[in-house]
Every structure is written in C-alpha cells, then in structure tokens.
C-alpha cells in the first residue's frame, strides 16, 4: 500500500507561525530584563549598610553589597581588607544582623547573576520558556534584598549607635539595598509579563 503524502494542516501551520511570532516578540522583553538585571547588580556597589553622620559629607563607615556578599561567601566578618568594607566594625556591634545581611546579599547576587545569564540566552532568541525561571530568580533576589535592607536598618536598635557613635544624634544607620531590590522587582515584572505571553501563545498551538 503506498504511503500517504505528508500534508500539514494549514491551520496548524498558521498557529505555529503565530507562536513563533510571539516568541520573537519576547526578545525585547529579555533584553530589557537583562539590562535591568545588570543595573541591579551594579547597584550592589552602593552601601548596603552605613553610618550616616549629618555633620560630615558622605558616610562614616559602609559595607557595599559586593563586600557583604564576599563576607558571606568567605565566612570572614572580621577581616580588615578593603574588599570586605567596614564589615569588621559592624560585625563587632551587631554580629547576627551582619550574618543575615551578608547571606541575603550573597543569595541575591547569585540569583541576579543567574537571571542575567538566562536573560542573555533569551535575548538571543533561545529557549523562550525560560522567562518564568528568570522571573523566579529575580523574585528571589528581590525578597533577599528586602531582608538585607531590613536587617541593615534594624542595626539602629543594637549597640552600634550608642557605642560606635557615642549616642551622637547626628548619626543614623542607612541602607541603599532597597535600590537593587527595586531593580530586581522591575526585572521580575518584565520576565513575568513575558512568561505570561509565552504561556498564552503556547496554549493556542
């Protein structure tokens, strides 16, 4: 018996083309998410915790996001090296807060890095289904950074200000970890929107 010729359903073909069109339209989403993830990582250069003295310019002592992450990854909270920022000082007065802040900074950095890699893969048109994974990673980074931010500000209630600053009312504890947190949130939203579009398009084929 002769084999039937291979005929493709025209309607199926149309759906497939529409799906491919949607996948292509997600590339700008991926590019935007990659840029946002890069910005979030760059914002790790800002102080995740610092003592601000309104009588002098800048901050008295600080620990940047990358320094905090390094402390967590290396387990070194008492090192005076420049790469570790002033973590040794904060750790002396609020060790528990420093451990949590640093652990969250490290977790956020790793999540954002992984999200960035995924977004770059997505931006070159590969594996469009990974938008949801990138969204999850950025959501995790956002949550970790919020915890970091909260624990930084909570150091106000430790002996840090009464002892390090002699109770000087001009001194306060500040944190800019909220900035990369907001960037991670924005990146998550972009990836989430893309993931929804992809899911809807996949349902229709």
């Amino acid at each position: 018996m002769a084999a039937k010729p291979n005929t493709v359903n025209p309607a199926q073909k149309k759906k497939q083309r529409a799906f491919e069109g949607v996948c292509k339209s997600l590339i700008p989403f991926a590019r935007a998410a990659a840029v946002i993830a890069s910005v979030a990582l760059l914002l790790f250069l800002t102080p995740f915790v610092g003592i601000y003295n309104k009588d002098i310019p800048g901050m008295e002592i600080t620990v940047g996001g990358f320094s905090a992450a390094l402390c967590a990854l290396s387990g070194q909270f008492t090192n005076v090296g420049a790469a570790f920022g002033n973590m040794d000082i904060f750790n002396h007065f609020a060790p528990a807060h420093c451990k949590v802040l640093a652990a969250c900074a490290a977790a956020a950095a790793l999540c954002l890095l992984a999200a960035l890699v995924l977004c770059v893969v997505l931006a070159i048109g590969k594996a469009p289904g990974l938008h949801s994974a990138a969204a999850v990673l950025q959501a995790l980074a956002f949550a970790a950074l919020i915890v970091s931010f909260a624990f930084a500000l909570a150091m106000s209630g430790t002996r840090l200000l009464p002892e390090y600053c002699s109770g000087n009312p001009a001194c306060s504890v500040r944190s800019l970890a909220i900035l990369p947190a907001l960037a991670a949130c924005a990146g998550c939203a972009v990836n989430f929107a893309a993931a929804l579009r992809y899911r809807k398009a996949k349902k229709n084929i």
Partner: peptide, 10 residues
Amino acid sequence: SAEYGCTCGK
C-alpha cells in the same frame, strides 16, 4: 576620635 573613628566631636 572617640568610639573607633566616629566623627562625633569627642
């Protein structure tokens, strides 16, 4: 300055 470097006037 007092208290390990804080510019707190002491």
